[in-house]
């Protein structure tokens, strides 16, 4: 038989997967637990991009893919997509968030106070090489503040709206099952507001950063001021079929408001995501801020940035170029050769 047997391809696939997994060794519950404990910010990023809030599943996906992040997200997304939708939670309000960190670059101080919370912003980034030579890096205990900051705070934008600096968008009263869900229906343009915010929430961090950074550098019209950046936990309240409300637990969320001056008012850009991921929400809010009236085909146009920051789609398409394309290539070669032959013909 001159053709490669079908089974040959399948054997090759099997062995290639074994090679990939060989380096990682056994994936155990302990490894998953350690991944979850040691890498909370990675787990957060993964949960946000996967739109699936489950630290154990995120850690498992990380362990199973050896940290190949695009594979991690795909694994979780394709698990998530077949899960039934049991209930729709109550909307999470800003005032109701349990806030861990809340800062504003717009004012020296804000009602409720600047709350630094957990951050490396002012750390000196020095690699702790002593760990490698046997000196563990043990975190120093946190000294609690004499007066704990209030857990719940209004947003800075709400204060600005009260003081006639900013027009808050009309509250969206869509509720429950009527809230559009971008995982259940196609994204069309002009996009529904819910679809835009959901797409940004699950967008790939690096992609959002690249386009948001382009906007910040000058390819956008509006220069962002971080009005408020917040890391918080949100209570997920759902209604039992019998009618009682109960909390299904809390999820970590990040949100950013960025503002820019437009005439006599401030314009607002907003983004939020599950998990704590500051770079992503600031960049995403910058895109949102620049979105209105952006020229077609520019990096800050909604269609442009929402399509191109979708991590599962962009990474998948990028690696699909590894697939054989010899039929299409052959078809192009044929047209090229024919055109060449035509050029070589003496003119009539």
């Amino acid at each position: 038989m001159a053709y490669v047997a079908t089974r040959g391809g399948e054997r090759a696939i099997e062995q290639s997967q074994r090679l990939f997994k060989a380096e990682m060794g056994a994936i155990t519950p302990e490894r998953v637990a350690e991944t979850r404990r040691a890498m909370p910010y990675l787990v957060d990023r993964v949960m946000g991009e996967a739109s699936l809030y489950d630290e154990d599943l995120a850690a498992l996906a990380l362990a199973q893919t050896g940290g190949e992040l695009y594979e991690t997200i795909l694994l979780l997304r394709s698990w998530r997509t077949t899960q039934p939708r049991l209930a729709v939670a109550d909307p999470v309000t800003q005032e109701g968030l349990f806030t861990h960190r809340r800062i504003s670059a717009a004012f020296k101080d804000i009602p409720g106070g600047q709350l630094l919370g957990p951050t490396l912003d002012y750390a000196h980034r020095i690699l702790a090489t002593e760990v490698l030579t046997g000196t563990p890096h043990v975190p120093t205990l946190v000294t609690p503040a004499p007066h704990p900051a209030p857990a719940q705070q209004p947003s800075v934008a709400a204060w600005q709206a009260e003081n006639d600096l900013l027009n808050l968008p009309n509250p969206d009263t869509t509720a429950g099952n009527d809230i559009p869900d971008v995982t259940r229906e196609p994204l069309l343009f002009p996009a529904k507001r819910a679809h835009t915010l959901q797409s940004l929430a699950r967008a790939e961090t690096g992609g959002v950063l690249a386009l948001g950074y382009a906007a910040q550098r000058g390819y956008g019209q509006a220069h962002p001021t971080v009005n408020e950046l917040r890391l918080a936990e949100a209570e997920i309240n759902v209604t039992h079929p019998r009618g009682t409300k109960f909390s299904a637990g809390r999820v970590k969320i990040s949100q950013a408001e960025v503002v820019s001056k437009k005439g006599s008012q401030l314009e607002l850009g907003f983004a939020a995501t599950m998990g704590w991921n500051e770079v992503k929400v600031i960049a995403a809010a910058t895109l949102d801020l620049n979105s209105a009236g952006a020229p077609k085909g520019s990096a800050t146009e909604e269609e442009f940035y929402l399509y191109h920051t979708e991590g599962v789609e962009s990474s998948g398409f990028c690696i699909h170029f590894k697939l054989p394309h010899y039929v299409t290539f052959q078809s192009s070669l044929d047209a090229m050769r024919d055109a060449k032959a035509k050029q070589a013909e003496p003119a009539e």
Partner: peptide, 16 residues
């Protein structure tokens, strides 16, 4: 015709 296009256990661009 636009459709939701769920993720499947294969990378996008590979026949999903």
């Amino acid at each position: 015709i636009p459709y939701a296009s769920r993720e499947v256990p294969m990378a996008r661009g590979w026949g999903t």
